[in-house]
Structures are given as structure tokens and as C-alpha cells.
Amino acid sequence: MGDNAVTKRVSRLSGRRQKQIKLVLFLLPFMAMVTIFSYIPLFGWSYAFVEYSPGLQLWECEFVGLKYFERIFTNSADFIKVMRNTLAISSLNICCSVLPAIFAIAISQVKYKRFAKVVQTCTSIPNFISWVLVYSIVFMLLSSENSALNNILMGLGLISSPVNPLTDVDHAWAVQVSINVWKTLGYNAIIYLSAITSIDQELYQAADVDGANNWQKILHVTIPGLLSTFFVLLLLAISNMLSNGFDQFWLLGTGMTWDKLEVFDTYVYRMGIRNMEYSLATAMGIFKSVVSILLLSFANFASKRLRGNSIF
């Protein structure tokens, strides 16, 4: 009997070992793919430390150390402004990141399922409209002197001279964040919708038994069910604060609003890539990667402290 118990324990142990090995083996091919496509190209980070010219081999380029990193910061007035814009716009977007969750709850509350589906499909459409078209739409419908918005507002006598959201410097951030929310709300809600459908229906039934009304059900069943998803996305958003997307600001920024709308991605393009200064562009890329990973670690650490478990 004693032998049996020992044998059982031993075989269970080696069974676990077996499983562990199997897991790692299965994982290896995917790690290999990721290594090839994401980690191997990182040899290109070396371009930031030399005077890189395409076509030259790395050892043929002159070593310059941290010169290009210094250059990012030398024009400090410009750089500070760019960082300010980037972080401000990202922060506003993060504040608005709760909207897709609320929107998903709103859709799931609608009793007419077909209507809900139509709403969900239609609100996802703006996400598929390219930024080039968004520019055209904003120009023709909102911004031009002859736009629909201006015609309506002037016709109703609400304003005396045309408004132009695209040249409004003071509200530039609000305008861009609003446009971004319009574009991404429906699409981002999809994740939350799928999370809602995965909430155990029994919890709702139990709440009914306890006599909970609709609001209480939302508060105590739905929202907790979405919380883990929300936090993951929140942490990801925080770590991506330096990425605002190039197209939106390159296309919708105008001479009047560059002061507020120049973000890191357009800055890298303008200073580095467009001038074929690849060493500078690479240095900026390294800067962005390092800051993003730091932000992620910090956010993860904060989440561990606040919620008790680290997500990453």
C-alpha cells in the first residue's frame, strides 16, 4: 500500500514534468516565429549609434555614440511641445476609454435584439473609413465655410460667422479626441460585448432571485465581469501613450493647429524619415520603445498594488 502511494506520487510528479516539457515544446515554434519577425530585426537598433546610410554595411558606418539621442533633446522647446501634445492627447483618449464599455453595456441592455445588432454594425462603420476620407468628410461637413454644419448653424442664426474646427487652436485636442472617439467607439465595444456574453448567466439568475433591479444587476454582475478586460486594455493604453497614430494628425493638422497637434509619430516622420535621416529616426524609435516598456512596467506594478494581481 505504502509502495502504491509512493509510486502514485512519483508517477504524478513525472506526469507533471512530462506536461511541462510538452507545453514548452509546443510553444517553441511560436517563439521562433516571434523571434524572427520581431526580435531579429532589432539589430537595426545599431543604426542609431552610427552615421547610417542605406546600402552601407554596419561596420562601414562611422560610429557616433549617443549623438542622435542628444539631437532628440537639443531642440528642447520643440521636443517638449511634442511630448506635451502627445501625452495630453493620449491622456484624454485614456479617459474616454471607458466609453466603449459603457456603450457595450448600453447595447446589451436593449431588448430588441435586432435593433441592437443593427446599432452595433452601424457604429463600427467609422472605424473602416480611412483617415484620408475622414479628412474629406470633416472638411466638407464641418469645417469648410460652405459646410453643412455652418450652413445649418448660420441658417438657424446661432452663429454669425462660420466655425472651423480644424483651425481652432484652443479646442484642438478636444476636437481630435472627439473625432477619434467617433471613429473607434463602436469597434472597440466589440471586445466588451464578447466579454459580456461570456458572463455566466447563472449570476444574473441569482441576482433576479435576490430581487435585484436592472441597475443593480449592471452594477454588481455586468461591470465586475468586464473589469478584468477593462484593466488589461487600460494598462495597454497607458503603455502606448507615445503612440497616437500618424495618419490622424498628419492629415487633420493644419498650419494653425500644428502647435497643439504635432505628436511624436509625426515628429519622427518629419524629422527623421522624410529627410532620410534614419539614424535619427531609429534613435527616436529606441526612445519610444524604452519609455513604453517603462510605462507598462509602472502601470503593471501599480495594478499589482491596487488590485492584488499583476496582469503582465
Binding site: 546610410s53 542605406p54 546600402g55 552601407l56 529627410n275 532620410m276 534614419y278
Partner: peptide, 30 residues
């Protein structure tokens, strides 16, 4: 062009959209 230069896959005859910047790069890398 930069990618093709780096990879050595340039075509036989090609145009330079910005000769001032691109010609020195091409000459440097033969």
C-alpha cells in the same frame, strides 16, 4: 529606395526623387 539600397535589390535604371540626398547615399554604397 532606402529599403532596396539596403537589401541590394535595386532595379537597373531608376529615378531619384531627391537627388541631393539620395545620390550621396548611392555613391557611398557603390
Amino acid at each position: 529606395l532606402a529599403a532596396l539600397m539596403a537589401g541590394g535589390d535595386l532595379p537597373d535604371v531608376f529615378m531619384l526623387s531627391d537627388p541631393t540626398k539620395q545620390l550621396p547615399m548611392l555613391i557611398q554604397s557603390n
